[in-house]
Amino acid sequence: MDWFFKFPDMSRSDLREFKKSVDFAFTDFSRTYGEGIENFFEPLLMFLVSFEKFFINTPWPLIVLGIILLAWIGSRSILIVIGTFLSFMLIGYFGMWEDTMSTLAIILVATFLCISIGIPLGVAMARSNKVQATIVPILDVMQTIPSFVYLIPVVMLLGIGKVPGLIAVCIYAIPPIVRLTNLGIRLVDKDALEAADSFGANYWQKLFGVQIPLALPTIFAGVNQTIMMALAMVVIASMIGVKGLGLPVLQAVSNQYLALGLMNGLAIVVLAIIFDRVTQKFGLRMQKYRNDGKD
């Protein structure tokens, strides 16, 4: 009855051998292909770096102006514009300007990447149940696996730096945009699609003329979620060499600097709120025809 009380597990030496062989295999893999993969991501690094430089080197009044202009275009709400302005002034006043710019750069690049990969992926999922059945479990894993766990292979492959950080952020932030694009397209009114069919619209005409426009509010909710998750990932990404607001937070945690941690943490929260409100308002304005269409 021994097996009943103690799980009949693998022997310790076997287990050690097993782990070793996996580790060696992956180390081998990263030795052989690591450089190739790094080269592959080189353009991404250039893109990110130049973006970051642009943000940091542009004089702050211009950046503030640009940001409140964007906030206005997105939200058309004077309240949000004022809030945005005050937030950025405070962030700058408390000496977090440069870190905020770095964070902004990585968030924007990550969001751009997630959108340009996530939307086509969502469209493909909506088109075929097989593709959906394949991708959904992958997304489930991406969303539930502790982020520290996938940091390990990413770092083994690419080392510490901006690109692995960016990839980690993207892995964490891409699921909502994929899921909501798929959902939005699948929920498009069957009648409207049938009408498009009956007039002889082809697949692309239906996709761009009917499905995506009607799914846009849902897709946009996905974009919003993706931005939020990217921001949440900033602190963790700073563990593997991403500069920005996350780094001081990390220092604050290990050294018990309350004020430093609080300030930078709040700056992240403020960025999140601004992004969220602006994109939400923008999403609402996109579907004005749903209410009564009158401006």
Binding site: D189, D191, A192, E194, P213, Y289, R290
Partner: peptide, 9 residues
């Protein structure tokens, strides 16, 4: 169509 099936957007 019975339910019109116009394109709302």
């Amino acid at each position: 169509f019975q339910k019109f099936a116009l394109f709302p957007h």
